[in-house]
Design a protein around this nucleic acid. Structure first.
Lengths: 144, 144
DNA sequence: CACAATTCAATTGTGCACAACTTATCTCGA
DNA sequence: TCGAGATAAGTTGTGCACAATTGAATTGTG
């Protein structure tokens, strides 16, 4: 089938590969904190502002409760977050940081630098890449 | 924690989001073929050249036997590929396309166009994005 | 007020990723 | 040639993603 799409021409495969390569670079660094990459993302959001409902977290990360509920349960078991049923709306669960969870932020500050160093791209290129990716994500989301 | 890394500044998160958004666009299209995105990637490689060993497939896709073995088992159950123990080297398993697997290629030809349309980027931008991503992946791989 | 429709979180089930390990086969050097 | 090390594929166990469903709480409407 000579006109089948070629793997090495596909932006989608390039995205998939780059994304896995990036989390692979993060993996050993995050292991020191005892976090996986998605767990780290949740902590990043909470370090910026907490408490947050599961729905809100999902909105910022693009994840649903099917992914977040077990992930948050693990973070809670590690003693980094606490889930409290909201008083006003009993459907909602507010995710709070524990002191240990807040504490972890200082250890995490140096992390993004690692990827930048490993990336082999200039600051300008990284910034342009980020901006292109955000436009792409936006366009893909609104395409259906 | 005001100097914690910010989610929206991270290239890594942009990559992770874009990659998931892209496979989400592919998902309904691939569903018509009965394939998941990683299964589609394996078929792409085989459509270019077959048979291939599990190791070779893994080399091109960056996946190991832990991921590929069950995936190939599912493709085999669907009747798209066949696994044959190599005669010369009994350790190797050659993955062949079945006629049905070869056939599927024609249905798949139109697929990459879909992403391009949904991407909202010009051909030039897509090409530049792909090239940047490939350099990035390369640099990330060689960073350890 | 009543109650149908909606919303939120959790659960279930499938399929990747990936580390760690297992088993079978092969290769190469003493 | 024989045995240690390397290599190929598969298995096991953990943790995402995501669709589909469930159950509880809330909201909107007649």
């Amino acid at each position: 089938m000579k006109d089948a799409p070629r793997l090495d021409r596909q932006v989608c495969f390039a995205l998939y590969s780059a994304s896995r390569a990036a989390t692979a670079v993060y993996r050993p660094v995050l292991e020191d904190l005892g976090l996986t990459y998605p767990q780290y993302l949740v902590m990043l959001v909470l370090w910026e502002s907490e408490p947050k409902g599961v729905k809100e977290l999902g909105g910022e990360l693009g994840l649903d409760s099917g992914t977040l509920s077990p992930l948050l349960k693990r973070l809670e078991a590690m003693g980094l977050v606490e889930r409290r049923r909201s008083g006003e709306d009993e459907r909602r669960v507010a995710v709070h940081l524990t002191p240990a969870g807040r504490e972890l932020s200082s250890k995490a500050n140096a992390i993004p630098q690692r990827l930048a160093e490993a990336a082999g791209l200039s600051d300008g290129e990284l910034e342009q890449l980020r901006s292109t990716l955000e436009r792409l994500t936006e366009a893909l989301h609104s395409s259906h």
